[in-house]
Each structure stands twice: as structure tokens, then as C-alpha cells.
């Protein structure tokens, strides 16, 4: 078993800065833009991106929270349910450009669930996807619009995103068997 740090605090910071710039550039500003973080790491990343955008554009991009548990496609086949926590979308989604934010993009199933849930909250004009890590192995036709770092992995590898909001130092760790 080997473990290596593939992103350090500086690397994570740079990646999020770049993503923030890309979001502004692609959407020609922040008009109608909202960020929605997927529990739990996605929320922290969405808030950081919102901060960065504020530094750059001097405008506030609202952040919502999505708990996709109830929309998972493996609930009925898996033993033991994950805890359900609250979704909090404190703004109207209709006509907005939603940037979904998550830490790791893998099979794409989480993003499918997140999009289904978002649609139940209203009809956004567009949904984009920002992730810190894209590790490949997609099982659904989903791709990210903004990627912090692409990391080729084996299916047995584990990627852990650690963030200071959870009481640890910012780091991304890749563990291979």
C-alpha cells in the first residue's frame, strides 16, 4: 500500500483560483450565477470559490447546499443507509446558472443524483460542474466544466480530500493498494 500527497495547500489554492477565473470568464461575469456545493467537501469548496470570485469581481455569488442522499441510485441495494442531512438552497433556481461543486468526480453517479435533485428545486438556465479532482472511471456520460487536477487512478485506489474546514490541513491524498 502506498500513499502520496498529490495536492498540497498551495496547489489546492491555485486550482481553486484558476477555477474561479474560469467560471467568471466562461459566464462573462457573475450575473445569474449561483454555486451549489455537494455535501460535505463540495460545500467548503463552493464557499472558497465564492470568496475568490468576490475578491476578483467584487460581487457576491450565493452558495447553496445539496445533500444528495435521498436521490442516490444505490440506496435500495446497499445495506445500511447513510445519514440524511439537510439540503439548503436559499434562493430561487429558476433561470440561474448553477455551478455544482464537488471534491472528486469519479463514476458520475453523485452528479446525476445532484442534477435530479436540483431540477426538483426549479429549472435553472444551465448547470455546470466544478471539481477539485477528476479521477476518471465514469459510468455515466458526465464531464466536468472546471477541473482542479486530473488524476489517472486504478479502480481500487482511494482519493481523500482533506480540507481545513474539517479541522485538518488542506491536502489531497492518493492511496494505492
Amino acid at each position: 500500500m502506498s500513499e502520496k500527497v498529490i495536492m498540497d495547500p498551495l496547489g489546492i489554492g491555485r486550482a481553486l483560483s484558476r477555477i474561479s477565473h474560469e467560471i467568471i470568464e466562461r459566464n462573462k461575469g457573475t450575473e445569474g450565477l449561483v454555486l451549489v456545493g455537494i455535501r460535505t467537501c463540495g460545500i467548503h469548496l463552493a464557499r472558497r470559490i465564492s470568496e475568490k470570485i468576490k475578491e476578483i469581481e467584487k460581487s457576491e455569488v450565493p452558495v447553496g447546499i445539496l445533500d444528495i442522499t435521498l436521490y442516490r441510485d444505490d440506496l435500495l441495494t446497499k445495506k445500511g443507509h447513510p445519514a440524511v442531512r439537510k439540503t439548503d438552497i436559499p434562493f430561487d433556481l429558476v433561470g440561474t446558472v448553477v455551478v455544482l461543486v464537488d471534491d472528486v468526480l469519479y463514476t458520475g453517479r453523485t452528479i446525476r443524483a445532484a442534477m435530479d435533485e436540483l431540477m426538483d428545486f426549479g429549472r435553472p438556465a444551465m448547470i455546470q460542474l466544478a471539481v477539485l479532482i477528476d479521477r476518471g472511471h465514469r459510468e455515466l456520460p458526465i464531464r466536468a466544466d472546471y477541473v482542479g487536477k486530473g488524476v489517472p487512478t486504478s479502480k481500487t485506489a482511494v482519493i481523500k480530500v482533506l480540507l481545513s474546514e474539517e479541522g485538518t490541513e488542506d491536502r489531497v491524498i492518493l492511496r494505492e493498494d
Partner: peptide
């Protein structure tokens, strides 16, 4: 929270 949504139904 779910029961307070516009669409109160989840696919669970």
C-alpha cells in the same frame, strides 16, 4: 426540510 420544498417528493 424536504416537506418544506416546492416539490415535496424524493425518489428514495
Amino acid at each position: 426540510e424536504v416537506t418544506g420544498r416546492e416539490i415535496k417528493k424524493v425518489p428514495t
